Simulated assay, not measured.
Amino acid sequence: MKRSFLLRGVVAVGALSIAFPAAFAQDVSGELVRCGAISDDGARLKCFDALVPNARKTDAQRQAEAAAKTTAEFGLTPVQRSEHAKRENPEKAAREELAHQQDLSVTAKIAAMDITPYTAVFTLDNGQVWQTTSYGRLNTIPRVGQGVSVKSGPLGGYRLTIEGKTSEVGVKRIK
């Protein structure tokens, strides 16, 4: 019993030591791109300077911080965790809120479509190709030349609505 528990602990620590550097690298690369896109020289330098203290941390320091965060957030619901993150990093929360407030949608006309009993594939006149992912009903037969709108869904994913109709169906972009 003790050997099994010890083996699980060693496996968990090994997995964490592999995961954290990769996650940190992705986070830093995104921040570097964001800083590089700033046109004002002073603001860009300030952005890069803010990344330096975090880049100098060792993997052990990052792992300790992650473990402390996990312990601090233990038992919180996803909503509570989100509110906690907003309090910890208000600048990042403001950027994310701005992205969510933008009207993220595409409006185009159906150029071609392929409908089977279980799925439908819509090729739009802007070159995008969308495939249905849910069994929702559009309450109409879509036609080539008809306008459609694809919007971000409330829980992620995308929803397609045909012009003049209120029903929608889940879709994913395949091209």
Rank of each mutant, 00 (worst) to 15 (best):
S4Q: 00
G145L: 03
A15N: 00
R44L: 11
Y118M: 09
E73V: 05
P154N: 11
D114T: 06
F74W: 04
A111W: 01
K46D: 13
V52I: 14
Y135F: 07
H84N: 06
A120L: 05
E96W: 02
P53S: 13
S82V: 01
G147K: 07
Q26E: 06
K57Y: 10
G36C: 07
R8C: 04
P53L: 11
A25W: 06
V33T: 08
L138A: 14
T107Q: 06
V10N: 06
Q26D: 08
I115V: 01
Q102F: 11
I174G: 15
L45I: 07
A72W: 03
A68E: 11
S39Y: 01
Y118C: 12
N54G: 14
R44N: 09
L138E: 08
R87W: 01
L51Y: 09
S105C: 05
A55K: 06
N126V: 02
T140S: 08
E65H: 11
T58G: 12
R56G: 14
A23Q: 09
K165D: 10
N89S: 11
G157W: 11
D59G: 14
T119D: 08
V52Y: 11
Q128R: 05
S82F: 01
L98D: 05
G147T: 06
N54S: 15
N139V: 03
L124D: 10
S17N: 01
Q61V: 13
Q131H: 08
E96T: 00
T123H: 06
Q102D: 12
T70P: 07
S105Q: 07
E97S: 14
R81S: 12
T161E: 15
S152L: 02
Q26L: 08
E65V: 09
R8N: 03
K46Y: 06
E88D: 07
R143I: 03
V11L: 04
V148A: 05
A50D: 13
A64E: 15
R159S: 14
G153R: 08
A23G: 09
P78L: 06
K69P: 10
R56N: 13
Y118H: 07
V150H: 14
Q102T: 10
Q131W: 07
A19T: 05
V129M: 15
G156I: 05
V79D: 02
V52H: 09
V121K: 09
T133C: 15
N126Q: 01
E168F: 11
Y158I: 04
A55C: 07
G170R: 10
S152D: 07
A68F: 05
S105P: 00
G42D: 14
Q146Y: 02
E97D: 14
A111F: 02
